[in-house]
Every structure is written in structure tokens, then in C-alpha cells.
Amino acid sequence: MKGIPVIRANELTRKFGAFVAVDRISFEVHPGELFGFLGANGAGKTTAMRMLSGLIRPTSGTASVLGYDVYRQSEAIKRSIGYMSQRFSLYEDLTIMENIRFYGGIYGLDSRLLAHRADEMLRQLDLELQRDQLVRSLPTGWRQKLAFAVAILHRPRLVFLDEPTGGVDPIVRREFWEWILNYVALGNTVFATTHYMDEAEYCSRLSVMVDGRLAAIGSPSELRRQYGVHDMEELFLNLATSSFT
């Protein structure tokens, strides 16, 4: 039922000088999963994600993404994935349409397909009337939704989302996760980092990173049972504090 893993990491490590940002992590992500990567700020989530998306090279260990090797085939990985970075990734001085045209263009979409997807997307986002407005003028929640929509414009089978809901109010956050679930329901895989523990419940499986290492991995119910906790908040606090002892 699981099929070939979409992501397979083995002892993946990245050091910055003497600092070990990611310490020998091993895990697999399967097609159709919404895989959550939990951890405090600085736990190494973003570094791990950047290695998997081909933005930085691992120091050691191996990993493949969609069957491509992260060392040798990073450009092939980039062609097949979507990525939404932690920092706001749209151009604020461009309009919504100009952003869509730019990102569609650099993924090689032809103008007819692009126009079709843009219309569909703006309808879903309810931004049809604002298509010629500068992104700068949109509220944060809408911008994040737009950034996600742009990241899946080329319909990647695998999407990386780096703290997609940072600074977004709870209502928009819930909408946002429904969107992500919809995209997963189409058979795609989503890999998302977050430090909002309540969001972990949306994930089919998740892992908790503490100080560069993977402290726990499993589905939310498995983890609750295994660690005897009621929710992810409690799990996270247990794991994070135990690392100091």
C-alpha cells in the first residue's frame, strides 16, 4: 500500500563549521502523506528541508527525493517539487497576476495553461477582483495562501512548506490546512514544518526534531500511545526537556 518512498533519508547530516544543525536523521515519507516536521526554532527543521529540496548540500549521509539523489541530481529534484519558504517568497512590488505569471513562467508553463490555472486558482482563493493589486496590499493570511497556491502552480507531486502559517490568525490557519489536505487528497505528498503543535494533528505522520536529531516519529495516535501523552504539545515538551538531562 505504501509504494516507493517519496523521500528517503539515511543518516543525513549537515554541519555549519563546528555546529551540527542536522544530526544523522533517517526517515521515509510515502506517497500521499502529509508529513509534519515539528520542532522548536533552531532545531534543524529548515536545514533538513533545504537539504532535501536541493538548496544546500548535506555534509554526510544519503537522501533521495522522488528517486533523485540529493547530491548529484538536485536540479532534477527542483524540477519536480514545489517549495514555499519561511521568508515571504512573493514579490511585494508586483501584482498578484504578475507573480503568478513569473512563477508559472520559470516552471515552464505555457501561457494558455498558465492562464487557465491562474483563473482557477484566483477563483478558489476568491481573489479574482484583486488580480491586478500589488501583493504588498494583501493581508498576511491571504498572502500566505497565495504563496502556497503559487508553489503548487506547476502541480508538483511533492511540496515542501516551511512554516507556512507563521504570523497567520487561527481562522486562516485552519483554512490553510484544509487547502493542504485537499492537495494531498489528489494523491500528492506534502512535507511541512511547523512549531504550532496543534497543527500536528492534521498530519498523517510526523516527526519531532530536537537539537538536530529526530526524537520521535509516527502517526499522531501512535505517538500519543507510545509516549502516554494527550496531545502533541505535551509530547513535544517531554521530548524537548528530556534532551537537557
Binding site: S53, S85, R87, S89, I106, G108
Partner: peptide, 14 residues
Amino acid sequence: EIGTIEQINVSPVR
């Protein structure tokens, strides 16, 4: 500085 370059770096643009 703005960080938009990362979004280009993670795309297939050569």
C-alpha cells in the same frame, strides 16, 4: 536581501 532569490534557487531555472 529580500529572500525571493531562494524561491528562484529552488526552481528549475538554470
